[in-house]
């Protein structure tokens, strides 16, 4: 096979997996920007979202698209409740306490999901209308699933952009992330904004779970993909939404190319090698703003 085609094939599947890293990374960044908490349960929210979709579509017989939309709504509600029950009482605690609470939530979610009958620790397949279909583009052969992942990510990122720049609630969220005190005194209800951001972030994570399912199945440990998405978010500068997307894409593509050209095993560490290399040159990440704290 033509080496150029092989290279391009790897790039396309890298972009596709990179989109999923990007979505999980977006979830990290959204919550961090608004609430200054790093939510280590982001990958588990994705896992819960994928299980919701599996339950509705494969166990409940709901058609794919409405089933997935319902699963996104359910995961959003789950995120709002999680914020309400576990994180709201911790407002005002040191950041470290809150971050550890999210670590506890992630462990707890894995344990609870493993105990639910029908979910358990088995691997499940989320049926998907595009399974097995391919789309030829010139000499390239691209799977329809990959194209769907890319298309859905583009649409979602566009929709988030419009929401944050135009809708009043989106602007209020941005204001909250920049200065909570000033936002509160402009009449913005900060607690409601925190709930909303957890809802949005959980829904984005669930979407990532649904998109990941064809490649990695639905499984209680699928949330460990968060370990790849986290470097993606850091790579992009952690406070930056476009940064999260670009970071995810870079890590996805580098991983696929490492799998193609580099010795066995390099693929698994490629994300961290890239991260370390970038941080050495730009400690604030690709899109980060370096802040000097006056002392």
């Amino acid at each position: 096979m033509d080496p150029l085609i092989v290279f391009l094939q790897a790039v396309v599947s890298g972009i596709s997996i990179g989109c999923i890293y990007a979505l999980v990374a977006l979830g990290f960044v959204l919550i961090y920007k608004a609430t200054e908490v790093v939510n280590f349960a982001q990958g588990e929210l994705m896992m819960v979202g994928a299980f919701f979709a599996y339950t509705l579509v494969d166990l409940g017989g709901v058609p794919f698209v409405p089933g997935v939309l319902l699963a996104l709504l359910a995961t959003a509600a789950f995120g709002v409740i999680l914020n309400h029950l576990l994180l709201r009482p911790l407002i005002g605690s040191p950041a470290f306490t809150i971050v550890l609470a999210t670590v506890a939530v992630s462990t707890l979610l894995r344990a609870v999901v493993a105990m639910i009958p029908g979910w358990g620790v088995e691997t499940h397949r989320l049926s998907n209308p595009l399974a097995g279909q391919v789309v030829p583009i010139g000499k390239l052969v691209v799977s329809a699933e990959h194209l769907m992942v890319i298309a859905v990510t583009v649409v979602l990122v566009g929709a988030l952009y419009l929401f944050f720049s135009l809708a009043r609630v989106g602007v209020a969220l941005q204001a909250t992330s920049q200065n909570q005190l000033a936002a509160g005194y402009s009449g913005i209800d900060i607690r409601r904004m925190f709930g909303l951001i957890w809802g949005i972030s959980a829904a984005v994570a669930a979407l990532a779970g649904v998109l990941l399912a064809p490649a990695a199945f639905v499984h209680v440990n699928m949330g460990y993909i968060g370990l790849k998405a986290f470097p993606a978010a850091v790579l992009g500068g952690f406070g930056s939404l476009p940064g999260a997307v670009v970071g995810g894409l870079i890590i996805g593509v580098v991983e696929e190319l490492a799998g193609l050209y580099a010795p066995e095993g390099v693929k698994n560490v490629a994300a961290y090698v890239v991260l370390l290399a970038v941080l050495m040159v730009r400690p604030q990440g690709l899109f980060g703003i370096s802040k000097r704290v006056r002392v």
Binding site: Q174, N179, A183, Y185
Partner: peptide, 8 residues
């Protein structure tokens, strides 16, 4: 100590 939205 001024509380504004600095990046706007």
């Amino acid at each position: 100590n001024i509380n504004l939205f600095d990046n706007a």
